[in-house]
């Protein structure tokens, strides 16, 4: 029996936690746009201040907000290097072969790193303040306009729901298969590239077989009960909005505007 880690969701009762998930998602996307649009020093300052404010409101703590960012240090160095060395500009410090080191490149690299870091913090805040189920519901709502382009969102929602239900069952099955094969003498790791695929087959093939078998049974049961492609009107889910949602949205819009201006 293995328990599924719940990602980074942390229970709490701050305003951020209680906010309607759909609005939360919208706000996050707006904030993200603002972050992407920023490219001046006061702009970045405003962005950082905003993130700090949200962290405080959510009572999640700086550590949660910044989790994972430190681990990316190598990647950030790479971005800095690539941008410093390859940026197209006239004023270069030093040129050699295909490398063109420049101050503009360095600044560009810094900006990218900053934007990525801020996006990560934003992501952390969203994920820590909303349960996976809430978020999937929010995404389903977000998909509503797709309905007009012919996307069967009711079916998509059903598929996502079934997928979520499958996860714990498949996880347990995978554990059992791994144990059974290990007991048979399976060694899943191997040095040579030519053997790597083969050594993992005893794990992967049975897992897929078990998953497809369950899917087959469920599909047959659904068909037997008359489930068909969904047609017709889609009832809009009733949403419970509170003033906090409105204020949050408003702030984010203002934020976006501010970034554009700065």
């Amino acid at each position: 029996m293995s328990f599924l880690p719940a990602g980074s969701y942390r229970e709490g009762d701050s305003i951020l936690h209680k906010m309607d998930p759909f609005c939360k998602l919208l706000c996050t996307l707006l904030f993200l746009t603002a972050v992407i649009l920023s490219d001046t020093f006061p702009g970045y300052l405003l962005g950082a201040a905003g993130l700090l404010a949200v962290t405080m409101v959510s009572r999640l703590g700086l550590r949660t907000a910044l989790s994972g960012v430190k681990r990316m240090w190598l990647f950030f160095c790479l971005i800095l290097l690539m941008n410093t060395a390859f940026f197209e500009t006239e004023q270069t410090w030093w040129e050699w072969w295909i490398f063109r080191f420049s101050a503009d490149g360095l600044i560009q690299g810094l900006q990218v790193v900053l934007r990525v870091a801020m996006a990560m913090v934003l992501g952390n805040l969203l994920l820590s303040a909303s349960s996976p189920l809430e978020l999937v519901g929010a995404m389903e709502s977000l998909m509503y306009p797709l309905k007009f382009v012919g996307v069967p969102i009711r079916d998509v929602a059903m598929i996502l729901g079934v997928a979520i239900q499958f996860i714990p069952a498949f996880s347990e099955e995978a554990e059992t298969i791994r144990k059974a094969q290990t007991a048979r003498g399976a060694r899943f790791e191997s040095r040579k590239l030519s053997e790597k695929a083969g050594s993992v087959v005893p794990l992967v093939v049975p897992i897929f077989l078990a998953a497809f078998r369950r899917a087959d049974e469920l599909a047959m049961a659904m068909e037997a009960r008359g489930y068909r492609r969904t047609k017709g009107k889609i009832r809009k889910r009733r949403r419970h909005l509170s003033p906090a949602d409105g204020i949050g949205l408003l702030l984010c819009v203002l934020f976006c505007a501010a970034e554009v201006l700065l």
Binding site: F166, I167, V204, I207, A211, R214, L218, A219
Partner: peptide, 19 residues
């Protein structure tokens, strides 16, 4: 069938998490 494809897709999505 459409339903089979849909549920198989759900299974594959779940496998994206489990594998």
């Amino acid at each position: 069938t459409y339903v089979k494809k849909a549920i198989l897709t759900a299974a594959c999505i779940a496998l994206c998490v489990v594998l």
